[in-house]
Design a protein around this nucleic acid. Sequence first.
DNA 1: CGCCGAGTTTGCTGCAGCGCAAACATGCCT
DNA 2: AGGCATGTTTGCGCTGCAGCAAACTCGGCG
Lengths: 236, 236
Amino acid sequence: MTFAPQNLRRLPIFAALSDAERRAIASAASLQHLARGERAFSEGAPVGEFFLILSGHVKLSRASRHRGGVILRIAHPGEPFGPAGGTQGSRQTTTAIAQRDCLLAVWPIETWNRFLHDMPGLAIGLLGVLERRLAVTQDRLIEIASLDVPRRIAHLVLRLIDQAGRQDGDGVRIDFPITRQDIAALTGTTLHSASRILTLWERQRIIGGGRRELLVRNVPALVDLATARAADRDAR
Amino acid sequence: MTFAPQNLRRLPIFAALSDAERRAIASAASLQHLARGERAFSEGAPVGEFFLILSGHVKLSRASRHRGGVILRIAHPGEPFGPAGGTQGSRQTTTAIAQRDCLLAVWPIETWNRFLHDMPGLAIGLLGVLERRLAVTQDRLIEIASLDVPRRIAHLVLRLIDQAGRQDGDGVRIDFPITRQDIAALTGTTLHSASRILTLWERQRIIGGGRRELLVRNVPALVDLATARAADRDAR
DNA sequence: CGCCGAGTTTGCTGCAGCGCAAACATGCCT
DNA sequence: AGGCATGTTTGCGCTGCAGCAAACTCGGCG
């Protein structure tokens, strides 16, 4: 994605703005490159900027004393991250790490807040984005609170397909690198449990891939695994 | 709380509005009573109204085939519920049940959306509310993903104190009725596990109360339980 | 081109906590 | 005042999965 006003129009966050407003926002942005593994900010750091992903994927995680850490979400191209709306909190609550090389649009937080107050459509757009984010977070909360580990992972993979799936020959490829550890941190389990389950599914030809890769060969089977009632216990 | 514009000013959602705007919003509302156990809407029903709690507490829950169901949040006086921002989704994703008798302000969703577009300050206010809600939901996600059951319950009780605590003689009382089942559904565990833990804490004089009641006698002890590293395993 | 480290697989063991079952308490309704 | 429904406690067995340990594999770097 190039960073031009006509592309910005396609983004939900900017949908309710006029062309002039989009141009003003675009021209106030600076671009930032982030290599894989680099971080845009760390947990606890003062909030200084508002970020929008132009290309790449950013992992937002929080450390937890027990377990390795939990991933709150993975942000995809076109999505903002950093201070949710810009209005609250002066410290970052998460650490942002690039899953792959990224190009980011960046605004100083004061500039962003000025836009937010001057352009009513921006608040509306951001409201929609936050609503959607809240809905996804709530879904994950329900899953983690009520499903066992295999079902949680099945739901996660389906969500990843939805957010970042790309048709690829005989299946759907998740188009950014993701480790078993990441999958564990996204579903509230351990690397070991996640690895076991994915290996099993690979043997069943439901998924494929390798190191840092994830390819879903049989989506319907995954849907079954995600939704089936306990009673179908036919592992191995 | 009476439903008058000068009281509305104190609510975060209306903070950025002018008096005239608040009056317009107030005069467009209708009032609705909800007895304990009654529901404002059910999961899957079409979204028709935007709700604001004037008094009482409303439980927002979602059924899940496994487990009894999960509580997404408990909304308190001054908080809106129903369609998050009003902009997305035509179906309710949760069921809203009164934890105790409630008085609600209600707007038809079209009216609410009109306000949202005509009053820039309203979108800003709602944005802040959603940000806060998202932050709380994320906290819960982290807890449930990384902490064991006793710690999750300790965190929950502390959060309840924060949201609905009222000084009461020798301790802090949660000022709405809440069952062990509710506590289980808020922390992703079973009634039985929750009961065991709370009974233990009652014997240790950390909490008290009875049927549908919760009184915290020793807050620092709870903070310890919530934050202590695994290593302090001194039950009984 | 071989070493090294990051990522992954696999086995084994123990236990937290779920599932089931049943008794019990307490407030509410008639 | 009694009966009933709702909420709570408690016991017990079983198991999913965390926790530890170790081997293995691939890709990249010197």
